[in-house]
Design a protein around this nucleic acid. Structure first.
Lengths: 338, 338
DNA sequence: CATCGCCTGTATAACGTTATAGAGCCGCAC
DNA sequence: GTGCGGCTCTATAACGTTATACAGGCGATG
């Protein structure tokens, strides 16, 4: 096919190995020969065959970021950060869409594709601790999000319970008493949903407010449409909520839409809070109050940690990091001045 | 490292080649031996080393989709479709972010990474016809979007001029007379922006309305913030517009935000139209009227065409396809009944 | 009974790279 | 002048796979 080492070697009148050494700097090469070789490379337009290099070295320079929803802006924003961090470290990041599918997550974990990537950053939602423990592949793995925890892998996430606390405290502080949650899941499916519900519940109790199961709305997924439907159901209750906390910004945005259609005012009639701080929430009307995780920190840390494992720099025990978050107050809960 | 063909061959008491034939079905294998081999594969948990396979076959099974903005939902939605189509054809699609950077586009085109992907789907924005013609790599290429045209590659896009026409006609039909455009670019940068401006202009003239350069707002990029700022500038004009057509939905959404902040009513005071039909536009308030390209068709066609080239099925001349679009009327231009 | 062809399986040469062992040369010390 | 170490460079064996050429067995055909 393309130009290979042999072509360069012939052109420069040196051996294969010397060309390889010029390219990789593995062994020193005399200045004169180096120049000849470099010239041949430039003239013929050589670039190494990554497949062959991989075969020999056992590394591809590819790492994968596996996320459950490609068109959830939170993950798109996270991916953008991770891609540039990976590039800075000399790796190429490829995105893998699990589509929140259990089989897809398992396949990635055990690596049908294990030979082509050097490491994996996974945001698990449908698999749990046991599946991760049972993993047979030895490709380095970093987990993000609170899908699973207590496993012998590096793990980066925000404290979901604390994040929920912060959201509810804010709603309580602005005088809300009937606070709903949208985005609980039936069964043991989505660990982070459970944690966010738990934080919601604990914060209510801490504030001396009753926990009302009817105000916890379940959804099948976590998109705008799910939030919209759940909000409709909540409004149909005899005594509808005066505030809503969404599992994420998308769900909260769906809820906002239902409120607009119902002719209710936000935040006067119902206040709304989400999680993720996606850009969309800063441009809608009203703008969305949210819990903002430090996406930059999560993305960078995940990539760095993974690369350290790949290159054997990190020999220490698996690290669990809780990255910071902050409450960003916007119109959907009333601006600080108002 | 992992389990390889040799391990299986030893365990099953057959030769390497036979195992390979069981795995690939390249040559028939007797039923008894096939079973022994299969059992060995299952017991040892073998999966082929894709790097080595690639080296031998000259194919990786990887195709790339290179897009200018990863967190533009339009591309995220397109990518999701392309990923599943690729999977159906036995390929894995990896996403590549050019970040609308000229160098990144050139690098992809000429393929620093050429050995690792079998083909490339590219949405060019900063490079033009000449750069594409000068390309040296022989990896199959499919272009999407109207960034460049008239090149000897398969090319899939909507008719941007016609799309603009449709948008403007709609605005004229609901009685607007001072129609602005947001998202022109200085210089010869972004071809599709020029085409959309041209369609805007032609449609105005066709409707007997004057073309006013002051109503054409330039932006550096095409995000929500750009639309928001441009709309502010337009409102500062002595005689502000009664309708706005955005380069894409994101820009239009930014404009909507400015209008909300200015206390103007949409569509009563100003009507707004975008292009792309991203999900976000269906959930904001007001919902956004838009030109909806057939994303499914574009994604599927691009992948199919590329795979056909890779596998040598398509020997015919490069194909240029204009995919259909339709106007989706929503609240930002008044619902059909109102 | 020799020949042919089919069927199943084997041995082996690539693919393009990198790491290891070693070859040649030169200068210096004994 | 023999031996030794340091410096460049070369020859070559892997890495795991697939495709090609080939070998052996066996039934059918002439």
């Amino acid at each position: 096919m393309g130009v290979n080492l042999k072509d360069i070697a012939q052109r420069a009148g040196v051996s294969l190995a010397t060309v390889s050494n010029v390219v990789n700097g593995y062994r020193p090469v005399g200045e004169r020969t180096r120049q000849r070789v470099q010239q041949a490379i430039d003239e013929l337009g050589y670039s190494p065959n990554l497949g062959a290099r991989h075969l020999r070295r056992g590394r591809t320079g590819l790492i994968a970021l596996a996320i459950p929803e490609l068109n959830n802006p939170y993950f798109a924003e996270l991916a953008e950060i991770a891609i540039s961090e990976a590039a800075a470290l000399g790796y190429t990041l490829v995105m893998e869409n699990t589509a929140a599918d259990r089989k897809a997550e398992l396949a990635l974990l055990d690596g049908t594709r294990r030979h082509i990537i050097d490491g994996l950053i996974l945001s698990p939602v449908r698999i749990g601790r046991e599946e991760v423990l049972a993993r047979s592949a030895d490709t380095p793995l970093v987990l993000i999000g609170e899908g699973v925890s207590d496993v012998p892998y590096d793990h980066i996430a925000i404290d979901n319970v604390a994040a929920s606390h912060a959201a509810i405290q804010h709603l309580v502080a602005i005088g809300r008493r009937r606070i709903a949650f949208i985005g609980a899941t039936p069964g043991g499916d989505r660990q982070s949903a459970h944690l966010r519900v738990r934080g919601y519940r604990e914060a209510l109790v801490a504030a001396g407010l009753p926990y009302r199961p009817r105000l916890v709305a379940r959804t099948d997924a976590f998109g705008r449409l799910d939030g919209k439907r759940a909000m409709r159901d909540l409004l149909a209750l005899g005594d509808p909520p005066d505030a809503v906390f969404g599992y994420n910004d998308l769900v909260a945005i769906g809820a906002l839409r239902t409120l607009a259609e119902a002719g209710l005012r936000v935040p006067e009639d119902v206040a709304v809070v989400g999680i993720d701080d996606i850009e969309e929430g800063r441009f809608g009307t009203p703008t969305l109050t949210t819990i903002a995780p430090d996406k930059r920190e999560i993305g960078r840390l995940a990539v760095r940690r993974l690369v350290a494992r790949i290159e054997g720099t990190a020999v220490a025990a698996p690290l669990t990091v809780q990255t910071p978050f902050r409450l960003v107050r916007r119109e959907s809960t009333g601006t600080p001045g108002g």
